[in-house]
Design a protein around this nucleic acid. Structure first.
Lengths: 225, 225
DNA sequence: GCAAAAGTGTTGGTTGTACACCCATGG
DNA sequence: CCATGGGTGTACAACCAACACTTTTGC
């Protein structure tokens, strides 16, 4: 089929990661006018794929990850956002475990790296604006859906989950109250397993109960921190 | 400057209205392949305007309304959503009073009409999907911002506001509890005026207190119905 | 024993819900 | 005098924030 690209539309991905603190994935471009500058991973859309398909393809190209939660953020369409010509970009965002993938540079990027969410370098084009918007969206989404679970390993402790919420929302939470609230939702399934070799009492491991989540989605549901 | 249009991008607007029940504004196209079919008001983007500007311009063209709250919904980009060629559309939504404007047909539309939100005719392209998405978004937004106020006349009664929430969210609310909850937010300012000539006790009129809203926006804020 | 996190318990204040009740007005 | 909505009061349950406290593990 036709694999030519649409000249006036692009995709950019804001990919969040977590390894104790919140990260965002950036690439250093190795060609074109923005050579050497950091920006969001992204690319062009071909005529034979939908926006969502293009976003998934590009995410796979960059991280090797497939079948990942990927949500549209917003279309950014300021007149001069792209210096060479008029291009509107559709931004997507996603969350993955930083350990889940070997990052692959190459492609059009000379470097790929995780940055702490509050210590990003200057970004090209309007990518700073896109990242800021994504952060705001993450604050909202993390309350409405148990989205954070994509950022943790399959089995995790309640404290890890609490740290994820704390670093995403930039708040300090009360441990006893957090565990009660999160357990009450029923979204966590006890693995009946302990984490060993830690220099304190061994914590239980939990996993995310997807069937319970699907059931809750039909009604309304808010995690209010 | 260049007022040529971008060939692969369009704008569609989902415009909600309220006059006792929730409405959506549709137009009947009078030319092109979709002649005679109902769809969303929309149009094309020129090279010298941003997406937001294009959406405002098109909304003004269609309703005569200016300076209206208008928010981006989502970009819709299925491969064959537009039959003639590949076009991605960026959908916006907005809320206005149905009485606030004389609807103007003409332009590319042979008819413009308000439809009850649950009694829309078959729509062209993927417009049904866009409307459904907008309804979902409205449910979410109406809780997070006092967005509904755009749909009511400047001065309104608490019961009108309650009906707006009930018809937007498709729920039945308890009158005493509704008034307490909404008054507690401080978002309503007492007009010190009564509505007269009603066949029951005259209700107080309220107006939306914008300054209080701006103040609340800085913190977090949820209307939970 | 110490540090660090796991985990339980309690308490007092806030909020939400359901419902009973009285008030004003036009027809 | 009735229907319709306006508006107030209340009581019980649920919930939540704050914080004290005990437990387990590695060093």
């Amino acid at each position: 089929m036709d694999e030519e690209i649409m000249p006036e539309l692009s995709i950019d991905c804001v990919i969040f990661g977590f390894d104790g603190s919140l990260k965002v994935l950036l690439v250093k471009h190795k060609e074109g006018i923005s050579q050497g500058r950091w920006g969001l991973p992204g690319g062009w859309i071909t005529y034979n794929e939908s926006l969502d398909q293009a976003a998934s393809r590009l995410l796979f190209l960059l991280t090797g990850l497939d079948n990942i939660f990927l949500d549209q953020l917003k279309a950014f369409g300021a007149v001069n956002r792209f210096p060479e010509r008029r291009v509107v970009t559709v931004a997507y965002y996603s969350m993955i475990r930083t350990t889940a993938t070997e990052l692959v540079a190459g492609y059009t990027a000379s470097d790929v790296k995780w940055f702490a969410i509050h210590e990003t370098p200057a970004l090209m084009y309007d990518h700073q604006e896109i990242v800021s918007f994504a952060k705001k969206q993450l604050h909202i989404k993390v309350r409405q859906e148990p989205i954070g679970f994509n950022l943790l390993p399959e089995k995790f402790t309640l404290f890890q989950l609490q740290q994820l919420y704390e670093s995403t929302l930039q708040v300090k939470l009360d441990k006893p109250n957090f565990r009660r609230k999160i357990l009450k939702t029923g979204l966590l399934e006890d693995c009946r397993e302990m984490q060993a070799n830690v220099s304190h009492r061994s914590p239980k491991l939990y996993r995310f109960d997807k069937s319970r989540y699907d059931q809750l989605k039909t009604t309304r549901f808010l995690l209010d921190f």
